[in-house]
Design a protein around this nucleic acid. Structure first.
Lengths: 193, 193
DNA sequence: TATGAATTTCAGAAATTACTGAAATCACGC
DNA sequence: GCGTGATTTCAGTAATTTCTGAAATTCATA
């Protein structure tokens, strides 16, 4: 029942990193444990492995469910909930990015749009307004790109990642027309430094 | 000396978001204030604008300097330190990504490499080891892509972002050879679901 | 609808993190 | 070096977050 040293080390690392990732130690460890467990685990098993109270595990699992990072399974003749992480790592990454965007970017983008509307007149706000506007445009560009990319099937995505920046040579070869940016009129002010 | 409502709103929003971004309220507000201030500010001005203690501002600025997110300026006949954010938003984004990677990804990648070496024998660890290895490979792919992209000049980067996923059509047209992935032998197992 | 296992909720305790004011340090002009 | 102002450090306090055990709730089955 006890964890091997390898498992122990992995789980503890994720616990420590938790704080940097904006989750707490418990949640990090629970996720790590599920990630490297071949079979689904129920809350009690998790509590036992990690030495947390049952209620703490319950809260941690709730948090992970809110992040959409765990899957719920049921076994025959056992009404306890069993948890796993998706087998497909790409799915995990997609979820992680999506959820972080939702929590960390989207609220700010809304706020920027709002401020951008509000703050148009006043001369006192001229500079602040232009900065906010610039920031908004940049974030719109980045999230627009992301929204576009997330639709790609995994195979193509991996392909593009492998190509890396050398893709830009393809853009050049393609006649450098760079088919008018789809998304934004002018794009952000791209002054090269 | 007081902030306009627009500035106030912006600053408070960044303070609130701070916790989600893994920084604290103070640091978030200081950064926001510097970001929308046309001219550099010294620590005392910041403390005054935001209503924090002088020492808190000092710590906040230290943190922002550790993140490499502020620039230090000096004015004629004034030995106080004045702070600004870079004019170029792209530079800010690059710094942000780089620093977050350094804090949030790199330590985990090191750990995964270590565990990947350690945990090779034991049958008990077979599954955990394969999961760890898979995760390591995926992160290597992603960070490799990032390392490659970060060298691009801003103009090209913005161009690629505007193109979004339609780039993949260029890859196809280019003869679909997809010049052997530069970085990894096989790439992560790309099973399409 | 009563039972009991599984799970969640929640109030308080414990731990961590943020913030302050006072004292210490630093750095520059004299 | 000495004095003055700017900045940092730091120990104590405040605020926040995490964690626990006990009580409440849920829910399948008898």
């Amino acid at each position: 029942m006890a964890l091997t040293p390898l498992q122990q080390d992995f789980v503890l690392h994720f616990g420590e990193m938790g704080s940097r990732w904006g989750i707490n130690r418990t949640v990090g460890q629970i996720y790590a444990l599920l990630f490297i467990s071949e079979h689904p685990l129920n809350a009690e098993q998790i509590a036992e492995h990690l030495g947390f109270s049952r209620s703490n595990v319950s809260m941690g699992l709730k948090e992970l469910q809110a992040w959409n990072l765990v899957r719920l399974k049921h076994l025959q003749n056992d009404r306890r909930d069993y948890f796993t992480t998706p087998d497909d790592l790409w799915e995990i990454v997609r979820t992680l990015v999506e959820e972080r965007k939702k929590r960390e970017i989207d609220p700010t983008l809304s706020k920027l749009r709002e401020l951008s509307m509000d703050g148009q007149g006043s001369a006192d706000d001229a500079y602040a307004h232009s900065r906010i506007e610039e920031l908004r445009e940049l974030i719109e560009l980045l999230t627009g790109w992301y929204d576009d990319m997330k639709g790609l099937e995994t195979k193509r995505l991996a392909q593009m990642l492998s190509l890396g920046s050398s893709i830009h040579k393809l853009i050049e070869k393609s006649g450098r027309v760079v088919s008018l940016p789809r998304r934004m009129s002018g794009g952000t002010k791209t002054e090269e430094k």
